[in-house]
Amino acid sequence: MNDIHIKGVHEAYFVPTVNFEVATGKCEIEGESYLEETTKFYAPLLAWIREYIDTVKGPLYFDFKLSYFNTSSSKCLVDILDMLKNYQKKGGEVTVNWYYDDSDEELEEIEDFIMETGLQINKIPLE
């Protein structure tokens, strides 16, 4: 399987920067997520995680540094978190860091993701 590297774009739509590495299990999604076809964009990311879990079976370190995501992106983010939670349940090693600027609303949103998925997420304020 291959790494995923997507360079963020801030034009009519906002594409987040994505870096998924097979060798290290390090994954990051950062920037802004507001896409023309949200599900289509996230499908290969979900497929990558699925394949990594099934074949590599290594640890996964996820860094989310999203300064903005719209509601349809949030659905896909929950799909990712659900997948990570299931992997963890089956004994996989999963670390998730979520970076946020110091607004209550964003903190709330992370807390809701935790509640929604049951996954432990480290909340890290951005400097």
Partner: peptide
């Protein structure tokens, strides 16, 4: 409202009643 958003978010896309998180998000924001 947060509970409602969590609920809506877990509804499969395209299902009736789902896909309407936008307004909830507006109220929360």
């Amino acid at each position: 409202l947060r509970e409602y958003r969590r609920l809506q978010r877990n509804m499969p896309a395209g299902q009736k009643g789902g896909g309407n998180i936008g307004l909830i998000q507006v109220a929360l924001t």
